[in-house]
Each structure stands twice: as structure tokens, then as C-alpha cells.
Amino acid sequence: MNETENIIIVDKLTKKFGDFTAVDHISFEVHRGEIFGFLGANGAGKTTAMKILCGLSLPTSGGGTVNGYDLCREQEKIKRHIGYMSQKFSLYADLKVWENIRLFGGIYGLSGKRIRQKSDEMLHYLNMTDLRDELVGDLPLGWKQKLAFSIALIHQPAIVFLDEPTGGVDPETRRLFWDLICETAEGGTTIFVTTHYMDEAEYCDRVSIMVDGVIADLDSPAALKQHYQATDMDTVFRKLAYQAKRE
């Protein structure tokens, strides 16, 4: 497969902090249009790897491409062509709904006219038209997350990175959020997602599991369950993560 079919290609990617090798020669591909689950225990190196893929950190050695842009030399292009959302930071609580859309639309270089058009579309799709003048801080968490996700897609990126997008929300909202993810994937956007909820790993087309800086396994949930003779992904995850040596 080449860059037309693989939106992410990573080859022997390594990141060291002093003597500590956070990410240790990982190689993998993400196919265009798939939902790719990026799992790992705390401290396995997920966040470090994800920062490199988002153009926020340079690898110590190895490299790769995201949407055809080089991880080492084209970080600014990567940032402009990906979407990113995390539960920890997404929107400005003390700006109104429309102001947040305006701000992020502007950051991604959309014209004023295009931003107005996208705002209307987005708020209509999310059933939030009446909430455009509300402060984001006053919205329930579930609405904030849906809005943050839609804003991460405002510049129509080919791939969106979701870093634990569903932490702390109630079970129904968590599922409605995944409906939104599946709907977006059906539209052709590639989804790269991390989560601590192992049932959510089942919604992914393929899943990689990092242990101690390396990718311990990568396959479809069905194939992983079969290989580890497990009935669910929780068991697969625990079988792999218990091999971890480092604290």
C-alpha cells in the first residue's frame, strides 16, 4: 500500500527523553477511511506518539507521513490538515458557541462567509441552533463534546485525532458520541482515537495496543479476540498490558 491508501505511514518511529525511550521503533499504517483505535496502558507511550503524529513533537529517529506530509519536515502542514480533539482541552468556556466556531474557523483560515455557512450547517446538524449565543462553559458536557468534535472537523480534514474523547460522560451520551464518530467515518473521514473504555475498542476497524513503547499487537478486534482466546477486548488488553515491565 502507498500514500493514496494509507493516510498514516510510520516507520521505526522513536522518541527518547534522556535515557528513557518513550516510543521505541514503532512501525504501522492507518488506512484511509478507517476507525483506528490507539490503545495502551498509562505510560506506554501513546501520548508521545500521538504528539508526533499531530506535528507537535519531533521524533528522535525514524519518521513517517500523515496525509502525505512528512513528520519531520512538514509539521506546519500536518497541523493545518488534521483535526484534533481531546477531552482535556477543546473549546473556550468563556466564549459563546458561535464565537468558538468563529475562532477555530479563523485559525484554520476559512473565510468569514464560509465560517457563517459552516456555523449554520453545524448547529443545524447538532440541533444546537438555539444555543448559538450560550457560553460554552454553560453547556452540558455531552453537548460540549459534540460541538468540540464538529469544530475539529470545520476545515474538513481527511483525518481527525480524538484523545480520550468520551471520558466522564454518561453512558447514553457516550454512545451518541460514538454514533457521531461512525457517521463521520461513513462520510470518509479517517478516525484515530484513544480510549480507556474497552467496549469502544470494539467499534474500531483496527486496534493497536502499545506496551512499554512498542506496539505489542495490531489487528481487527475480532482477530485479536480470536488470537488471545478472549471474549472481549478488555481481556485482550489485560493479557497484553500485564506484560509491561516499566512503571
Binding site: A41, N42, E164, D234, F237, A244
Partner: peptide
């Protein structure tokens, strides 16, 4: 919260 499945166990 935010702790992986193994550490939670």
C-alpha cells in the same frame, strides 16, 4: 478516572 484497565483492576 483516566487510569488504564490494568491499573484499575
Amino acid at each position: 478516572t483516566g487510569v488504564d484497565a490494568v491499573s484499575r483492576k
